[in-house]
Design a protein around this nucleic acid. Structure first.
Lengths: 150, 150
DNA sequence: CAAATATCAGCTCCACTGAAATAA
DNA sequence: CTTATTTCAGTGGAGCTGATATTT
């Protein structure tokens, strides 16, 4: 396919390899359609950052690196789709906690189910030890490059 | 940070770990600004797919999964920025080959340079053997999940 | 002429920002 | 007075389709 030495370097870089894996996983996940609603990339990013214990808009906005207004809008859209809900924050009358609804949780569980299945498949192909090793080293790398990440 | 068992599963999945690494790398790369032009995400995707030996619009469109018209427009924008050029395809008078200009190549080389630097840094932290192992296993995973990828 | 490729024009979403209102 | 959130209005980018060259 590629013979050029520069292309060789490019295509074997950690950056490119991880990007390809991420893209492939997203592609597969898109076909699974765990829940019968479609979700924009930006909405998905919110769902990824949202912990099952709930978060505030401000926290989500900081994690997403976008404005609170944009976050608020995305949350509103997800609320319309029935995936998340707002509840008043008991600790702060001005704030609200964003939490998953039952169907939102179902979506998360479906995604986790897919991840489990995917990893079982990969374990079959490259061996469970190697997969475990890759994951543990990737976690170390993620901690180094993205210490704030969840 | 996270105590919930479901969140624990989510945050330790291969999908999430690779996504965090990709996002972190993109963030770092964005700050480097190898060349004094700004490039949209869509334009960047074209540059990533473009091989230094040149490709046709049709090939790029297929790889990107978008229409030929959209691809043509992106190439045109990159041409305006002086990063790529069109040359007639010797094999087919109707077609044209998209190639990197000198400054486009410089950009690619700068990116590869950053990748090299990044991997040196990671090798320092987790050890060169582990890094090499992660890369080789990621490559195997990428081949399994994205056999067409370059 | 037909087929392949490339471009142009117009359009629709999406994702975001800034300013301002509301509320605690 | 500050902080959290929401609403409103507007922008720019990315991609699509349909029509129109152009080349073989």
């Amino acid at each position: 396919m590629t013979e050029n030495p520069l292309d060789e370097l490019r295509s074997n870089s950690l950056g490119r390899l991880t990007t390809r894996v991420v893209a492939a996983i997203e592609r597969e996940l898109a076909t699974r359609q765990v829940v019968a609603v479609d979700i924009s990339p930006a909405q998905k990013a919110v769902l990824i950052q949202l912990e099952t214990t709930g978060n505030r808009i401000t926290t989500l906005a900081a994690r997403l690196g976008i404005s609170k207004q944009a976050t608020s809008k995305l949350v509103q859209e997800l609320e319309t789709k029935g995936l998340v809900a707002r509840t008043p924050d008991p600790a702060d009358g001005r704030a609200s906690q964003i939490i998953f609804t039952a169907s939102g949780l179902e979506l998360v569980e479906g995604t986790v189910g897919y991840f489990r299945e995917l990893e079982a498949r990969l374990a079959d192909e490259i061996g469970p030890e190697d997969l475990a090793l890759v994951k543990s080293k990737l976690k170390a790398i993620a901690r180094i490059l993205d210490p704030e990440g969840f």
